[in-house]
């Protein structure tokens, strides 16, 4: 693996089930993540994904690619366009730096209305994983 390597993209269909399951699994019971009517009353067109689920998906994207021996060290994300039901988010990543056994990956998750998430993940791989 080298600086500049691109990770294969991961498409995540944004279903109501994913939004609700992610919210509940992260113990986030804010109604804007499960109740469309209350979400509308608060000015949102529909329910939308919570930040903890986005964080989890970004982590999964990295470990799916680098494998179970990869260890996440840092995940830093910023949210932009919300993930609403019916949309699709495509995660892409690019290795920005490699230092010994540690790589820094720039991640972008784009949906139909813009960039849902941009962020940086620092991940450590055991030496056998072929970091150069």
């Amino acid at each position: 693996m080298n600086t500049g390597d691109e990770l294969p993209p991961l498409e995540i269909p944004i279903t109501r089930t994913l939004i609700v399951a992610g919210a509940i699994a992260s113990r986030d019971y804010q109604d804007v993540h499960h109740d469309p009517e209350l979400a509308r009353q608060k000015g949102s067109p529909d329910i939308f994904m919570n930040i903890l689920t986005t964080n989890g998906l970004v982590g999964r994207y990295i470990t799916d690619h680098f494998g179970p021996t990869a260890e996440l060290r840092k995940v830093a994300i910023r949210l932009g366009a919300p993930n609403y039901p019916g949309d699709t988010m495509v995660l892409t990543g690019r290795v920005e730096a490699v230092d010994g056994d540690t790589a820094t990956v720039r991640v972008v998750g784009a949906n139909g209305i813009g960039k849902h998430v941009t962020g940086t993940v620092t991940v450590t791989l055991p030496p056998s994983e072929g970091l150069t």
């Binding site: 989890g56 998906l57 799916d64 021996t69």
Partner: peptide, 13 residues
Amino acid sequence: RHWCEAMGDTNPA
């Protein structure tokens, strides 16, 4: 396990 199911994360770790 509930988290991994929601995220679709099958990492054996």
